[in-house]
Design a protein around this nucleic acid. Sequence first.
DNA 1: CTTATTATACTCAAATTTGAGTTCATTTCA
DNA 2: TGAAATGAACTCAAATTTGAGTATAATAAG
Lengths: 205, 205
Amino acid sequence: MSMKMLILGLLMERDRHPYEIRQTIKQRNWNESFKLRDGSLYYAVDQLRDQELIEAAEIVAVPGENRPDKTIYRITEKGKSALDKLLYEQLNQVSYPQHPVFLALAFIRYGDQERIEQLLLKQLKACEERIKRMEVVLEIKGVFLPAGSQMMIKGFKRFGETEKEFLLELLEQARDGSLLKGPTWTLEQIEEYQKTHFTPQMSEE
Amino acid sequence: MSMKMLILGLLMERDRHPYEIRQTIKQRNWNESFKLRDGSLYYAVDQLRDQELIEAAEIVAVPGENRPDKTIYRITEKGKSALDKLLYEQLNQVSYPQHPVFLALAFIRYGDQERIEQLLLKQLKACEERIKRMEVVLEIKGVFLPAGSQMMIKGFKRFGETEKEFLLELLEQARDGSLLKGPTWTLEQIEEYQKTHFTPQMSEE
DNA sequence: CTTATTATACTCAAATTTGAGTTCATTTCA
DNA sequence: TGAAATGAACTCAAATTTGAGTATAATAAG
């Protein structure tokens, strides 16, 4: 998965130890796009080491008695070509429109109106804050960034704006009660109707 | 996670067996938003059964010698209140702008221009097809759907449109080569600069 | 009418993620 | 100045996901 790509990519720039990789991922705002967990990071590092895509460049002693020393890793030649492959694999992955609210919408009619309004509002706030953060990043770091990284931040902002509009609309519909309306037809009627029409479906995968 | 919500939600409508749940998820295009795996589905069903949120309503024998019988599940009272809780948890989850291309952009400069163009084009095609699918669904199923489900599909479409615009821009920049440009400043210069400026960062979580 | 594919209905080991905890150092704040 | 909170640097078991496989029936294709 993409954690491995991130690690290899960062080690292309210079040698780093795992915690430093973690810092950098945060500094560069990559974790706007996924939840960064220590567990996944260290697991991926171990995997990469075992596959000899990275290797220990240096082991630095850390003050304190029974504390682990930190290992600074470097990317190997094998690792460089693996990064190349991982990059194309990443670009080749199927993308899904994801948002916690999407699937919740399927059963939103079973929920309590006020509670739903509150939570949608919370989503909206979070989304607005994200947009704001991305604007600030573009302002103060924009010019320094490689073209790709700049586009990543712009992407976060644009996707955020779409999300915001969508949430605003949902909120409005939650407030006037129309979002909580059940189906106008019964399940049986719908299934009957569907049999007489073509039902478009994603292909498996 | 959301698989459990989907199962409970579907069992609110009527009793179903796992494979039927799978079908319904696909029929309703919910799998546009995530990868539906049999493993996760059956695992979630087992969990729900063990927690007594669902129970076997009927066990139907299936023709054939050593084939498993199918179990039709029903939601329990306990399950109904669990669904309520899961719905709010779902609405309360942090949302991330996700797209495979986002993280790839971080290292896109290490890749091959032609290869990248091809893959971006492939993403664009897939995205356009998704938009098309959603338009067809809205046309032929739109009126039948509960308000929430209709908004879900509209959301898929809208997010798809933003994605499309973004991919078009990336493709253009990949073609004229500007996307592959590295940083204009060195890492050291940037880090130096950053020390003198505020670096906005997401709070942990 | 025979073969090939698709649909049904799962199971399972291995890979990965999750959430929580650990230890010591440094900074903050009363 | 001492206590509390935060940061650094991990570790680990348990939960979950992944990918691939199984078996049979029904349907489609040649």
